[in-house]
């Protein structure tokens, strides 16, 4: 019996470790998947000045992000078929309709956003100062959940129309 008591602690630890897993899985998403899902949803609430039948969605980041975005290929939003592109730093981004920027190099992001300014591209990124550089949607975390802010002034310059529903959900709207 003495030995049993010795191991009982491990038992309790292991069982308690499993509890949150058995109950709470449905409400969890892996980061890259969540980002791709968010990008898809943002695109539903944005209207581009020209409709071509195709929506070019670009991701600039690691392999994992690229894999998650690749799953959007072939889907459609308002009868526009999604075409996915995985970019690397330095690749031209002028033909994207939506560009998700998930790299760490600030100077590269600032430069890229400056080049894309006034182009009808919905830029999404995670830097705290993303909106400062002319990025349109900045994602950030509150605890384990995503939040976002919108730079509406830049969106207007770019000729993008962002629906009121999206703006309502934003934590902050910068004019």
């Amino acid at each position: 019996m003495a030995r049993y008591n010795k191991y009982r602690w491990w038992w309790l630890l292991l069982v308690s470790a499993m509890l949150p897993n058995l109950s709470g899985n449905a409400r969890e998403l892996e980061e890259a998947t969540a980002k791709a899902a968010l990008a898809f949803n943002f695109a539903r609430y944005v209207e581009w000045p020209q409709v071509t039948g195709q929506l070019q969605i670009c991701s600039l980041g690691g392999e994992e992000l690229g894999r998650a975005f690749a799953k959007l290929q072939g889907r459609s939003i308002r009868e526009q078929n999604i075409v996915v592109h995985s970019l690397e730093i330095g690749d031209p981004a002028g033909n994207c309709d939506l560009l998700f920027i998930d790299i760490r190099e600030r100077s590269q992001i600032a430069l890229l956003l400056d080049q894309l300014r006034e182009s009808p591209i919905l830029t999404i990124g995670e830097l705290p100062d993303f909106n400062d550089y002319g990025g349109i949607i900045r994602l950030f975390r509150e605890g384990d959940k995503f939040r976002f802010s919108v730079n509406l002034g830049v969106a207007r310059e770019a000729g993008l129309f962002i629906s009121a529903r999206l703006l309502q959900l934003a934590r902050q709207v910068i004019e």
């Binding site: 969890e28 998403l29 898809f40 949803n41 690691g62 994992e64 995503f146 999206l166």
Partner: peptide
């Protein structure tokens, strides 16, 4: 299951309410 499908049926409100988990990543550079 990293190759989990993207829940496209979820609304933006639902997505903002979901818990996001991060797996350790090596900085790309």
């Amino acid at each position: 299951g990293r190759d989990s499908d993207i829940p496209l049926e979820m609304s933006l409100e639902e997505l903002l309410d979901i818990e996001v988990t991060s797996v350790s990543k090596r900085p790309q550079s």
